[in-house]
Computed example of a mutant assay.
Amino acid sequence: MSGHFELYQDKAGKHRFRLKAGNGEIIAVGEAYNSKASAEKGIASVKANAAEAPVKDMETGDK
């Protein structure tokens, strides 16, 4: 099974998403959103931007 996003409502009533790897491990978590639509936009942003995003190694000062 490939990775997938899970969209859910937390205990405070905020909408969140998490990205799970194929083995079920959580590999990314989104912030708390006031609306489901905003959380869905967050997922879309990750999908659109993450594939080409460079890695900035903050431990070595690579900015």
Rank of each mutant, 00 (worst) to 15 (best):
G13A: 11
G3T: 00
M58N: 14
A50I: 01
N34L: 14
E52K: 11
A44N: 10
G61M: 06
Y8T: 05
A39C: 13
E52Q: 13
A53M: 09
R16T: 03
G3I: 00
F5Q: 02
A51P: 02
D57S: 01
T60S: 14
G24P: 07
K47Y: 00
S35Q: 11
L7R: 05
K36C: 10
P54E: 03
E52Y: 06
M58F: 15
I43F: 01
Y8W: 11
M1R: 09
A21Q: 09
A44G: 08
N23A: 02
A37K: 15
G22D: 10
A53Q: 08
A28P: 00
S2V: 10
G13C: 08
H4F: 11
E6H: 07
E52A: 12
K47D: 03
G3E: 01
V29N: 12
R18A: 02
Q9D: 02
F5A: 01
A21I: 04
Q9E: 12
S38N: 13
V46T: 04
D10L: 10
R18I: 00
G24I: 04
G30S: 12
V46L: 07
S2F: 02
L19S: 00
V46N: 02
K47W: 06
G22W: 06
G3C: 05
G22E: 09
T60D: 04
S35R: 15
Y33G: 00
G24H: 06
E40F: 03
A39I: 02
D62A: 13
F17C: 03
D57G: 02
K56G: 04
A32S: 15
S38F: 00
G3K: 02
F17Y: 15
M58D: 14
S45H: 12
A48E: 12
E31P: 08
Y33P: 01
K56Y: 15
A51G: 10
D10C: 10
N49G: 07
A32P: 06
I26T: 14
V55L: 13
G24W: 07
D10Y: 08
I27E: 01
K11N: 13
V55S: 10
H4D: 08
A48D: 12
A44H: 05
A48Q: 11
G61F: 05
N49C: 10
H15G: 00
R16S: 06
D10W: 09
A39V: 06
A48P: 04
N34Y: 11
A44E: 13
